[in-house]
Simulated assay, not measured.
Amino acid sequence: MANNKVLLVDDEEQILLSFQRRLKKQFNLDIATSGKQGLEKLDSEGPYAVVVSDYRMPEMDGVHFLKTVKQNHPDVVRIMLTGFADIHTATKAVNQGQVFRFLTKPCPPRDMAEALEQSIRYHNFIISEREVIDLKRWRKSLEQMVAALARLVESRDAYTAGHQQRVALLSVAIGRAMGLEEQTIDTVRLAATIHDIGKVYVPLEFLTKPGSLSPLELDVIHTHPQVGYEILKPIEFESPISRIVLEHHERLDGSGYPQGLIGSEILVESKIITVADVVEAMCSHRPYRPSRGVNKALGEIEQKKGVCYDPEIVDICLELFRKNNFNFQI
């Protein structure tokens, strides 16, 4: 929301009241009759978009005041107002207070209004730019965290190294072919990149066991979607990453785990990753079996289309491999 709050600081109260009376319809104006009072208002009643300060005031002059404002409230746009305009004053105001505008007394309300409008636009532009930069930094940090989590999983198990990245690659290709929005595709990519994060709590000997797993061992491995959900739930993702991770082993007919969801209860992003996960897993070598190859993997999802796997997603996946020559090269 745009901020149009302005603080006028001058030891001549009549001047402040005059500006307040004439400009109150255009701006949200507060007044202070000293630098000290101005600083108190900034701390207790802010944030302000603009501060206008007289130069000559007792105890604390305008340069000192605006310099302090710059230190304590750097986002506030600063304007100097004085009847003693000279090069020395202007230089001090610019260098120490980094003022945006320099106005001389007597200042007509029209000139003051113009200066405030420009200053408010500048303030809101700076705030908007910072928000964009902060969002980009947050996204970069999020990406780095996701990559670190992915490496953590795959560093434990050489057989599945790169599995999550390859699942993400296929999932994104499916999402694009479905015509999903870029934000949704990015959600799919992030979730796929860490969909097996819950395996960090699965004993490594279960993951790398060359023979068949016992029912107990299978039960432990089947906990990894729930564990992944619990790991990711506290993280403030913009999209339902933790839920997608929780659902990536669900099946349309309710035969999946951990919740036994059916049909529309499963997110489309989860359905995409489910198909990509099955295909990539069957194409890759595992401790307990060699790669089954692309044809068998595609045959698996084709056979169970509409039963376990979403028909549209399966058809798109088949087309990607059979017509578009998709491969898992990262």
Results as ranks from 00 to 15, higher is better:
R21L: 09
G35Q: 01
A113K: 11
E269T: 10
F326R: 09
D11G: 07
S155W: 08
L16G: 01
G162Y: 02
E117N: 05
M1F: 05
D253K: 11
L8F: 09
V172C: 05
P215N: 04
Q37Y: 07
A93F: 10
V294I: 13
I313M: 00
A276R: 01
I197V: 15
I87W: 12
I31G: 04
E300I: 06
L204S: 03
G256K: 02
A158Q: 00
L7D: 00
G254H: 12
I244F: 00
K140D: 07
Q71H: 14
V6I: 15
K5Y: 11
V9S: 05
D315S: 10
H163P: 06
G306V: 03
N3M: 10
E114Y: 13
V94R: 01
E312W: 02
H248C: 08
P287L: 03
R292H: 06
I197K: 00
E269Q: 11
R101T: 12
N28T: 14
A49T: 14
P203T: 08
M80P: 08
T274N: 15
R101S: 07
A150I: 03
G306D: 01
I133T: 11
V245H: 06
K305N: 10
E40P: 09
N4K: 13
G35E: 00
D253E: 08
V278E: 04
G293K: 00
V6Y: 11
L42C: 02
Q71I: 15
L23D: 05
H195T: 03
K105C: 12
R156V: 14
E13P: 14
L213K: 03
Q164C: 09
E143L: 04
Q303V: 10
